[in-house]
Amino acid sequence: MSENKLLKYPELDLNKISDRIKYIRLINKQSQKDFSNQLNISLRTLQTYEQGKVEAIPYQTLKDIVEQFNISLEWLFFCNGEVSREENETNSAATDADQRLKNIENKVDSLLEMFDQVFKIEK
């Protein structure tokens, strides 16, 4: 996707994305002016984003928010997972570790069942 194209997909609720943009600004304790300057957009543009008065948001603006504020793209678009990319990565790693542990436990259970069967046959 070209960075100049607008993000305009029907499955994305721009009003909710607008709310999350405002939330990001507030948790970072920035004024609208400071936040818009950091994103290299006009104050008025940020205000229209936060009010949900847009039909599309430039991809580059969303990319800048994600990168500059360490925000999870999945959270920004769909409110899934954690706000921070690091928290999502940590949760994902924990989920992977849990899955590996479960796989090991299943293998151990299978081995114990095999040993039970072998010892029952020999008796």
Rank of each mutant, 00 (worst) to 15 (best):
F115T: 03
E89R: 12
K5G: 14
K63S: 07
Q60H: 15
E122G: 15
K5C: 13
K5P: 00
I21V: 08
L12P: 00
R44L: 08
A56K: 00
K53E: 13
A56W: 03
Q117M: 03
S42D: 06
T61H: 11
E11R: 00
V54Q: 08
K63C: 09
Y59P: 03
E89Y: 02
K63N: 11
D116R: 05
E82H: 03
L43V: 06
T45C: 05
F77C: 01
E55D: 10
V118N: 11
Q117K: 14
L14S: 00
Q32R: 03
E105G: 05
K8I: 03
D34I: 04
N40E: 03
L73P: 12
E87I: 02
K8Y: 02
Q38S: 04
S31E: 06
L62K: 07
S110M: 09
P58C: 09
A94W: 02
N88Q: 06
L14H: 01
Y49Q: 10
N37V: 02
Q68A: 05
C79P: 07
N91Y: 02
N80G: 06
N106T: 06
T90Q: 15
I17D: 07
G52L: 09
D98W: 11
E113T: 09
P58G: 08
M114Q: 14
V118R: 14
M1F: 11
K33P: 00
L6A: 04
L43Y: 13
K53T: 09
V66W: 15
S110H: 14
E89S: 09
A94N: 14
N37C: 06
L112H: 03
